[in-house]
Nucleic acid binder design. Structure first.
Length: 222
DNA sequence: GCGACAG
DNA sequence: ATCTTGTCGC
């Protein structure tokens, strides 16, 4: 694989980013969380499974759940995650027939060397509102948020604000929130806050992850 | 040159 | 990212 040409593609797609709000965060009601798992992470071509959970932030309830399976070949390479996971994300996205206000992905939005983490990449390709909620650091400088739920601090890359690092739950490691597409850094945080229900991860991606574990277990136990 | 590096 | 129950700390 030629990483330099993939870099070129990331730079080209990043030019299409819209970092303004397509929808005001206080009008967001349905947030879709997308997550992936693999049948055998130690094998290279292996079956990948994607889940998409639509979460109603007003009713605090699950609207619908969708799944998609496909063989995955591309390896995990930091800053090129989308080339491994995007085919699965697009597959489950096409299955979703519910009107979604914003898509939340596991991973970075524009907190990425070329502003094109998987959430940004997906948002540009599908022209939807998207944001990234990552569980760990990739790049960027920041101060640790206080140990108080909801506290957050800016994350800078090349002296530019790219997102926020938030203490979503007391005594838990912070999460990294950044715009994907058609949303501001501030609205990405607001949208995440709407989805926090006492767990470290916001409900859409947390539930997608949980449903995937069940789905995967059933596949393995037969 | 060295270390860090989403999932 | 997975395996895997109980256990410790706030």
């Amino acid at each position: 694989m030629d990483l330099s040409s993939l870099k070129d593609e990331q730079n080209r797609l990043a030019l299409k980013l819209n970092l303004k709000d397509r929808i005001s965060p206080n009008r967001v009601r349905f947030v879709a969380g997308i997550d992936l798992t693999y049948l055998n992470i130690w094998k290279n071509p292996t079956l990948g499974i994607a889940a998409l959970v639509v979460w109603d932030v007003k009713e605090k309830s699950i609207v619908d759940v969708f799944y998609y399976e496909q063989e995955v070949d591309f390896p995990y390479i930091p800053t090129f995650l989308a080339y491994r996971e995007l085919p699965l994300v697009l597959g489950v996205f096409k299955k979703c027939n519910v009107e979604v206000d914003a898509f939340m992905l596991d991973g970075m939005g524009i907190i990425h060397p070329r502003k094109l983490g998987i959430a940004a990449h997906f948002g540009v390709v599908c022209d939807v509102v998207s944001l990234g909620c990552a569980k760990s650091h990739l790049i960027g400088v920041y101060d640790e948020p206080a140990n108080v739920p909801g506290d957050y601090k800016p994350v800078f890359v090349e002296n530019e604000l790219r997102g926020f690092v938030m203490r979503s739950r007391k005594n838990a490691n912070p999460i990294f929130i950044s715009p994907g597409n058609n949303i501001t850094s501030h609205s990405a945080v607001e949208t995440t806050l709407l989805c926090l229900e006492g767990y470290r991860l916001p409900q859409p991606t947390r539930l997608a992850h949980n449903y995937l574990q069940q789905y995967r277990r059933k596949l393995l136990s037969r």
